[in-house]
Structure formats: structure tokens, C-alpha cells
Design a protein around this nucleic acid. Structure first.
Lengths: 177, 177
DNA sequence: TATTGTTATACTCTATAACTATA
DNA sequence: TATAGTTATAGAGTATAACAATA
């Protein structure tokens, strides 16, 4: 409160250096919650991903990507299963699939064992796109987070996030048990 | 592949128990990326938060919450500074502020030292709401994540996320450093 | 000429309800 | 009656461009 000249506007106490001693002053607002960081990081990483996927036919919006990759990885997957995995509702999934089909990325048939259910699989075009998307995302994720967290810490972060995600699926989707 | 009867649809390999040995089979899709978990967790935690904030005047959508809390915590903050902190653009911030003012939560004056700039502060009503929102969010975050990650692991996760967030602010906003 | 803030537009995501067809 | 999928609507977030006022 006495030195450390203002770096940006002079109105905020400057943030402490990440490696430094004290906490960042502004984080007392919601800094003891996981959700706060999740929300801000999601905004930043998804925005950056949108840019790097630009022109790839599933570009705008992060919502469709996981669905395409899941269909690619699990031929015959059903819409309701997609909804479970992605934590979206069936209505959303239906429109996403409609978009995939309109772009010639996915095919839909009636399931053999249940006339109500649909059977989804990627086309050759969809498979090619899925491969490119997967490569792009993997590269983007590394490039985006590398300057922020690296080495062992990166692995620890992934492990912790994965545990939370798995707990979430078990709780919300009833998958796996 | 031989036992572990299908719990949901029978089409997926069941997920491994979070504490168990192997990785969850489906996570090889994007499981080595931080962004994948961030995106899914954000969807789930924000959806849950929306429900718990229902009726609180900033209910729908997570976008306004941090802005209100920042104005509450930093009287006199300017829109451009809000944009930096929340990683949103100025146009968005302008509409959010407009909404706050329309609801009598925030007041806006012209800044003393710069006629272009605005000077934001919460009203008594806005301050009261900010307090309630902060309490609600803190409680929600604990309730939501407690079953998923607890104790030391929770603290480690927060520390890692915070480090990434601070790095992000330094990189994108030009704040601090 | 650059910056602060605003307005306007278009697209995407999300929630919700209602509907069909099958089981 | 319950489930799988679809359709439709409304509200909210985001990106982008264009603009006025001031520095």
C-alpha cells in the first residue's frame, strides 16, 4: 500500500507475482472457490480454441467438438449417450447432430434393437475432420497452458481435474456407477 | 471387456472407479488436455450455480456475477478495468453495467480526471445483493465440489488453478507485471 | 491518432416445454 | 406409463464492427 507503483490504471493494488510470497489481493473476492477459476479459465481457453479452429467447420462455439470426437471414437453411439457424456440435454444434442449431418460429417440410422433409438457414426469426411480437430486441440491446449503451468504441476492439475470430472459423471449421469 | 455389466446403456466401457487403478477409458479422447476438463466442469458448476442464484436478480447467466462483485469491492472502478479483470470485451461490460443500473444496483458518474471514463460504484441495494451473492457462491462452490475433491487435494487444486489464472491475467490483460 | 465507452448486429449456447413414436 | 428423439421458443453470452466523445 505504499510502494509498487500502479502498473495499469493505478486503481488496483498490483497483483503479486505468481511465484511471489503473498496472495494476489483481488482474489479474495472469490479466490477461495474452485468455480471462479474454472469460469475464467474456461472463457479464455475456449475463446483461444475458437480462434485456432476457425475454418474447420465446427469452429464457432466449443459445444460441438466433444460430440464429434465421441461419435468418431464410438461408432454407433446414441444421442442420449452423447448427452450424458457431454452433460448437455437431448434437445441440444439433437441440433448438434442435425448440423453434423447437414455438413456431411455424421450419418444417422435407426438402431437395430430399438426403433426409437438412433445410431450415429462419422462419415469419411467426419473422421478426417475429427482427426484434424483432435490434433488441433491437443496442440492448442499445450501451447495455451504451457506458459501458465508446466511439468509436474501440469500433470498434477490434470489428475485433480480428472478426478473431479469422473466424480461428476458418476453423480450426474449415472454412468459407470 | 468381460465382466462389469453395463450400467447405463451397455455401449460404453464402464468408467473405472476414480480411486481405482486404470484410467477411465473414454478420457483418451481429450483426457490429456486441461481444456477438456475445464470446459465440462465449467458447464456443470455454472449450471448448478445458476439454479442456486435463481431469483437473485443477477440469476441467469454467470457473466454478470464477477462484475458486480468487483464493483462492490472496488468503488470507482472503470468499465475498461472490469473488462480486463473478467476477460470480457468492453461492449459486453457496457451492457452488463446498463443492466445493473436499470436494476438500481450500480451508479455511474463521469470520472474526475478523465471525462471519457466512467466511475462505477454499487448502491446500497447493490452492496446488499453482492453480499448475498458472495455468500451463496461460496456455499455453492463448497457443496458442489465437496463430494468430488476434498481436503488437501482441494487446496492443491485451487493453488494450481490460481497460478494459471494469474499467469493468464499477466499475459492477456497486461495487468500487474 | 489513440483511448473510453457505447450501440448495433449476428451467431452460439442453454433451458424449457411440448410433441412423436416406440417400448 | 416411461423412454428416445425431435422441434420450437426464449433468454443469455460472445464476437465484431462502427460510432461519438475525449485525450
Amino acid at each position: 500500500m505504499d510502494d509498487a507503483g500502479p502498473a495499469h490504471s493505478g486503481r488496483f493494488t498490483p497483483l503479486a507475482a505468481p511465484g511471489g510470497g503473498g496472495d494476489a489481493p483481488d482474489l479474495d473476492i472469490l479466490g477461495d472457490t474452485i468455480g471462479f477459476y474454472i469460469r475464467v479459465l474456461d472463457l479464455a481457453v475456449s475463446r483461444d480454441l475458437d480462434r485456432r479452429l476457425d475454418g474447420l467447420e465446427v469452429a464457432r462455439g466449443k459445444g460441438k467438438i466433444t460430440s464429434l470426437l465421441l461419435i468418431d471414437r464410438h461408432p454407433g453411439i446414441r444421442p442420449s449417450e452423447l448427452a450424458d457424456r457431454t452433460l448437455k440435454d437431448r434437445a441440444q444434442i439433437a441440433r448438434i447432430i442435425e448440423g453434423f449431418i447437414a455438413h456431411g460429417l455424421v450419418e444417422r440410422r435407426t438402431a437395430d434393437d430399438d426403433s426409437r433409438a438412433a445410431d450415429l457414426r462419422v462419415t469419411a469426411k467426419g473422421a478426417a475432420l475429427a482427426t484434424r480437430v483432435r490434433q488441433t486441440i491437443t496442440a492448442q491446449d499445450r501451447a495455451f497452458f504451457a506458459p501458465l503451468i508446466a511439468g509436474e504441476d501440469r500433470q498434477r492439475l490434470i489428475a485433480l481435474l480428472r478426478r473431479a470430472y469422473l466424480g461428476l459423471l458418476a453423480r450426474e449421469g449415472g454412468i459407470g456407477a
